[in-house]
């Protein structure tokens, strides 16, 4: 998916006024990073090289997320079902989020002994109160669309299957505005939290090298339960 996002960014029409990000998967917007891929990737590499590997991985993701965040056009995320971990962090790059009633947002990373590493906390801090972030982060619980609307995480909640139509309607409205004014407004109200993002990258790489993450990933990957192990 990361490669696909890089291609989208490279091929964006400079004359476009809006980018809508949504998923056609039945289960939801995005369940986050592929934990099995992460585990097997680390297992295939000597531990002495994990720091460099993790740093390269996280820096590449941040380049994409930051570019999406700072696009000079309006971005709308349409969320249904699971919007977890890295998927939640992708959604948070959007200027506005429209969620269908089935949407659930979650940062499960502490269950793996790490923090969200794709820019999620700094971007969420830009939008909502610290209490909600602590709740999400320190409990690892998911919250539904209704709560997300109440706390200002999303801008609209719609019925199931109506998210994309609502986003297109919003895009049509946003597209009526003068392009220079629209870009200026976005740049003014949505600065990149660069210092916090840099700190987050360092902290993620530091935590991800500890045995706790590999042990948690191993339990998850090796589980054959319908409810894979997560504390």
């Amino acid at each position: 998916m990361l490669t696909a996002l890089e291609l989208v960014l490279a091929e964006l029409d400079p004359a476009a006024h809006t980018l809508i990000i949504h998923s056609t998967l039945r289960g939801g917007f995005c369940a986050g990073a592929d934990l099995r891929e992460l585990y097997h990737g680390l297992q295939a590499t000597p531990p002495s090289e994990h720091a460099v590997q993790l740093r390269g991985f996280i820096d590449r993701i941040h380049r994409v997320m930051d570019a999406l965040d700072m696009l000079p056009l309006t971005t709308i995320g349409v969320v249904h079902g699971v919007c977890f971990g890295g998927g939640f962090e992708l959604a948070l790059t959007c200027d506005m989020l429209i969620a269908e009633k089935s949407a659930r947002f979650c940062f499960p990373e502490l269950r793996l002994g790490i923090i969200p590493g794709f820019g999620g906390i700094p971007r969420l801090r830009r939008d909502v109160g610290n209490g909600l972030i602590r709740d999400l982060l320190l409990s690892g619980r998911s919250v539904g669309a209704k709560k997300a609307l109440a706390v200002g995480l999303i801008s609209q909640m719609v019925a199931g299957g109506e998210g994309l139509a609502a986003a297109r309607s919003l895009a049509a409205q946003s597209g009526k505005f003068d392009a220079t004014a629209r870009r200026a407004a976005k740049a003014f109200i949505k600065p990149l939290p660069a210092a916090e993002l840099a700190r987050e990258r360092d902290l993620f790489v530091e935590l991800a090298q500890r045995p706790a993450m590999l042990a948690a990933l191993r339990r998850f990957v090796e589980s054959s339960e319908l409810r894979p192990y997560l504390p």
Binding site: K101, R104, G144
Partner: peptide
């Protein structure tokens, strides 16, 4: 577990 999340949303609503 991901499908169970769908049920949680239904129940909360």
């Amino acid at each position: 577990s991901f499908q169970a999340v769908e049920l949680i949303s239904d129940l909360e609503n």
